[in-house]
């Protein structure tokens, strides 16, 4: 466990930004920190970065209570990011790397390596304002990782990148994990969560409402639902009646029926097929796996509905 937040609470005046939030980030994994806007993700990230301190609770980093020595072990790419416009790229990268505790010499060497890797050496003496937004994002990424931190925190890392650079960045993130870094990843982009994250925590209205490994969460939200497309032999659709089989949705188009079934817990896909095959010609069959997007929306909505009910 590289990072552990234990029951962290943070208030701004009367407003509670985080209410007893605990997260556990295993080492060498990618951790997704999810939640709607204003849920408190950024506050939690700022606490981990020691930009602010928690009112209650504690954060444990690598077995020790979070302290200023940890700053150089954490790399942070904030959602609101930018660079000094009038400063030269190389000068600025050196400055930021040194602020993270690298010596001037080390910083220069490592930066050179990264600049070569991204093939951006010729930008070294350019002013930041001369670069496009995507170029600036690359520089920003480099200065985030140049001090080889144990823990990397990316807040919406893909915003502002074109698809080619998104791929490049994703590959870099995966490689960072391969090389032993742990990555906390805050995003609204659920597709990237599914693709990259090993674990997630979902925060809504300053409270953590869901967390765990992505696979387990998906299993938990497994609904035993299937989507079937078929053609009817006797052109009378929707005639499959088995006890407990629930039809969630159905439609017919060009003689092809599409039906979504939910099965009782005791039944499986074979039972459904066995029941259907004597009557219809099955064209397509697939299990409905809940996407992280669905889980996100349904969980948040359910909690919010409860709130409304309670109040």
């Amino acid at each position: 466990m590289i990072l552990q937040a234990n029951s962290v609470t943070k208030n701004f005046g009367d407003f509670t930004a985080l209410n007893k939030v605990s997260i556990h980030v295993p080492e060498n994994s990618i951790f997704g920190l999810l939640g709607p806007n204003g849920a408190g993700k950024t506050t939690l990230i700022r606490i981990i970065n020691q930009i602010t301190g928690p009112d209650e609770g504690e954060v444990i980093f690598d077995g020790k209570r979070l302290n200023p020595n940890h700053i150089s072990m954490i790399g942070y790419l904030p959602e609101e990011r930018g660079l000094y416009k009038k400063m030269k790229v190389g000068e600025q990268a050196l400055y930021l790397a040194q602020l993270k505790g690298l010596s001037h010499h080390d910083a220069r060497q490592r930066l050179k390596k990264w600049f070569e890797k991204f093939e951006i050496q010729e930008w070294w003496d350019k002013k930041v304002e001369e670069l496009s937004k995507g170029m600036q994002q690359k520089i920003q990424f480099v200065v985030t990782v140049v001090h080889e931190p144990k823990l990397l925190i990316f807040d919406e890392p893909f915003s502002g990148f074109d698809p080619i650079n998104v791929n490049l960045l994703r590959d870099e993130i995966l490689e960072l994990r391969k090389n032993g870094s742990t990555i906390i990843f805050s995003t609204h982009n659920m597709a990237s969560v599914e693709e990259l994250c090993d674990n997630i925590a979902l925060i809504n209205k300053s409270v953590k409402i869901l967390d765990g490994p992505v696979k387990e969460i998906k299993r938990k939200y497994f609904t035993n639902s299937y989507h079937v497309q078929y053609q009817d032999f006797n052109s009378t659709p929707y005639q499959i009646h088995e006890p407990g089989f629930e039809i969630l949705e159905s439609s017919i188009e060009d003689g092809v029926c599409s039906v979504t079934f939910r099965l009782p817990a005791s039944k499986g896909p074979n039972d459904l097929l066995a029941a259907m095959i004597p009557h219809v010609s099955v064209i397509a069959f697939n299990e409905l796996i809940p996407s992280m997007n669905d889980i996100f929306i349904s969980t948040v909505n359910a909690v919010n509905a409860n709130h409304i009910l309670e109040s």
């Binding site: 930009i51 942070y76 904030p78 930018g82 660079l83 200065v143």
Partner: peptide, 13 residues
Amino acid sequence: SRIIEVIVSSVKP
């Protein structure tokens, strides 16, 4: 220029 958050993650405000 939004560099502030990058910097305060390295040094105290």
